[in-house]
Amino acid sequence: MEVTLSVNGEPVTRDVEARLLLVHFLRDELGLTGTHWGCDTSNCGSCVVLYDDEPVKSCTVLTAMAGGHDVRTVEDLEQDEVLDPVQQGFMECHGLQCGFCTPGMLMSARALLDRDPDPSEDVIREAISGQICRCTGYASIVRSVRWAAVHPEGRSEA
């Protein structure tokens, strides 16, 4: 079936199987491998993308269902070679170790800051509670998101 959706601001039309999950569409059809495919069971959250500006687990959405909707992936965060503040924050505060959960964490963090520019640590922890960091680096991830909240322009002031 033919599906048209917006991915990172660009309209995309593809002929896909109705059963194709959004995570595989992004990775295999569009080559956007920044979105990670983890547990397959909507538990780990490494496949989180923004769907009409809100985080969803792309392993539990059919590509067909996303037709007509706006999907944003981690590849969309950096603009004109300038990192998004959440990306910069993860760099500044050691928000990643192995990096597998990072794309999902970044997208949830971006959606949170768009809604609440100055979230408390508790609010950040709730926002990323659908995501698992198997390196258990949660404290650094929370610090990274706080860094992004304090530095909405992104770049380090040091």
Binding site: V48, E54, P55, V56, T60, E126, G130
Partner: peptide
């Protein structure tokens, strides 16, 4: 119930 991305759907 579940987590924020799941509750969004």
């Amino acid at each position: 119930i579940a987590d924020p991305p799941v509750r969004n759907r």
